[in-house]
């Protein structure tokens, strides 16, 4: 009896340890348009996954389904042991644990950078303001812009804003971080400072799903690279194999296009 129970617990905990995100036979439509087709993906705790593909391939939509910014119509998404359904309670629980960084930063322009960081801990985690601001300050130091804490996002450069946005997500102490093309809206000289922060985060063992075309970043930190086209996962492999030995023609074509310059 006790043995069986321990076994079950072990199974459960090991499953939780292994697959923090499970997506099974997931489909999504925008009206008539079938954007995501039969997506199957499991992400282990601490795994770093880079998703790439041509524009319109559904890669952003896929990661936006993971925190329910987009609704899927068929299949299952289980995040941190909680299934995503229409149930608002589930959605709230998952969003607390999943941080997201957007292409256009989406900082709140009417709040200072520190207030941006402290907002969610205060209102979602019900933390006292002082404590939340200390946490915010900590993370602003980690992304190397503590001196900008009292300024407004509008007074910062793009790279700085994106680093504030990363700090803001980290303040919620998330288990998973989603990055939706975090460097696509940045000037070339600012991409490095944002990628540095992301590399550091990856090295600390954060579970990351990252939609990006920064192949250098993918080679350096990704555990696996997923290539999507037309709403399907075409190929998924560890970075070396993926870049040196792509299997499908579409992957080859895509790689030749983005690595040409």
């Amino acid at each position: 009896m006790t043995e069986v129970q321990t076994d079950q617990n072990q199974v459960r905990s090991s499953r939780e340890d292994d697959d923090i995100i499970q997506i099974k036979e997931m489909h999504k439509w925008y009206g008539e348009f079938h954007v995501l087709k039969n997506i199957n993906l499991s992400v282990k705790k601490g795994e770093r996954i880079v998703i790439c593909g041509p524009s319109g391939s559904g890669k952003s939509t896929l990661i936006r389904c993971i925190n329910r910014l987009e609704e899927h119509q068929k299949g299952k998404i289980i995040v941190d042991g909680i299934e995503l359904t229409g149930d608002l309670k589930h959605i709230e629980l998952i969003r607390k644990e999943v941080g997201m960084v957007f292409q256009h930063f989406n900082l709140f322009p009417h709040l200072t950078n520190l207030e941006n960081c402290a907002l969610a801990p205060i209102w979602v985690r019900k933390m006292p303001r002082k404590e939340a601001e200390e946490i915010g300050m900590n993370f602003l130091e980690r992304v190397k812009i503590p001196e900008q804490a009292r300024k407004f996002p509008g007074q910062l450069s793009g790279g700085q804003q994106q680093r504030v946005a990363i700090a803001r997500s980290l303040c919620m102490n998330p288990k998973i971080m989603l990055f939706d093309e975090p460097t696509s809206a940045l000037d070339p000289e600012m991409i490095a400072e944002v990628l540095d922060v992301m590399v550091e985060l990856a090295e600390e063992g954060m579970t990351m799903l990252c939609v990006t075309h920064e192949m250098g970043f993918a080679k350096r930190v990704a555990d696996s690279v997923i290539f999507m086209d037309g709403g399907e996962v075409i190929e998924s492999n560890e970075p070396n194999e993926f870049f040196n030995n792509p299997k499908s023609d579409r992957t080859k074509l895509f790689l030749s296009q983005i690595l040409a310059h």
Binding site: N67, R68, L69, E92, R95, K96, V98, G99, M100, F102, N106, L107, F108, L119, A120, W123, V124, R168, S169, M172
Partner: peptide
């Protein structure tokens, strides 16, 4: 979206 993503009601 940012407000939703961070779990605000």
């Amino acid at each position: 979206e940012a407000a939703d993503a961070m779990g605000l009601k």
